[in-house]
Nucleic acid binder design. Structure first.
Lengths: 147, 147
DNA sequence: AGCAATTAAATCGTGTGCGATATAACTGGC
DNA sequence: GCCAGTTATATCGCACACGATTTAATTGCT
């Protein structure tokens, strides 16, 4: 053995996840630039297109983000007039999120993005699903270990 | 169909990668706190334990990071006296990175971290490898689409 | 040799991310 | 009804992460 290092970067599953995340980010960026969104903003919009009227906490749970990350992000979406934020009258601690007309209108142009991207990657639907399900298993295992 | 949204967050491979990355981060944090390193700093150290004397650019290529990210990170590692940075006399544009004795000494305590983590996740080596290889395929496909 | 083009790091501005803390609103026990 | 404890966001400080730009060094063309 010429290499004495017991830690090899390429053996790390965490590094594979980390690198794939960067690769997605780089590929998404030019497509999202046209929508005027960043990658996390895009994911937040996707979650809201699935169903708005949720609280900041519920959206955070969905996306796996803290209020310290979401609050500034949502304020930017509000400044862009895509989302509106309002205290819930039933419980003034909570802030409920709704899509504006402009926010809803963005869903059309945004629809083609994931298909464009998977097409560009040249991966088959089968490969795609296998990796996605593997990652979901992984995420669940890590979350269990954390809990 | 009761759901009209054509974009479902859970269908997104990119979201699965994004979430798994967060999950790793959360699980690594308490283990790395003991070493005084952040997660990206840890990956940089792993790369340097594999072989130091490389330039900032070479390390960036290995990790998939730009100099604008690496330079401040490396300055922090230098401030912790784990790494030293020196202009290459053969080409003064380049900065070569070497581990200090303290940096090399950290490899011992760091060794157990990945094993601790995979053990905690409760995943088998087989599952682990399957996901890692799938991700590497994915990363390569995305990089090809980007290039 | 001399100057334009290229290359390697560093710097700057913006936008995540998180832990710790603060603030404001609700809930329970009495 | 009041006060202690809890809960939901927001704020703050720090550390990535990148694109655009800058600075300094090298290369290449003539």
């Amino acid at each position: 053995m010429t290499d004495a290092s017991p830690l090899k970067l390429d053996d790390f599953l965490c590094f594979a996840v980390y690198s794939a995340g960067h690769a997605f980010n780089r590929l998404y960026r030019p497509l999202l630039d046209r929508l005027g969104l960043t990658y996390p903003q895009y994911l937040a919009m996707v979650a809201l297109w699935e169903g708005d009227g949720v609280t900041v906490g519920e959206l955070g749970q969905r996306l796996g983000l803290e209020s310290s990350t979401l609050t500034p992000l949502l304020k930017r979406l509000e400044a862009m007039e895509l989302v509106s934020r309002a205290r819930d009258p039933k419980d003034e601690r909570q802030v409920r999120l709704s899509l504006t007309d402009k926010g809803r209108a963005l869903q059309g142009p945004a629809c083609t993005v994931p298909a464009d991207l998977t097409a560009a990657s040249g991966m088959t639907a089968e490969e795609y699903l296998k990796i996605r399900d593997g990652l979901e298993t992984l995420r669940a295992a890590l979350a269990r270990a954390d809990g």
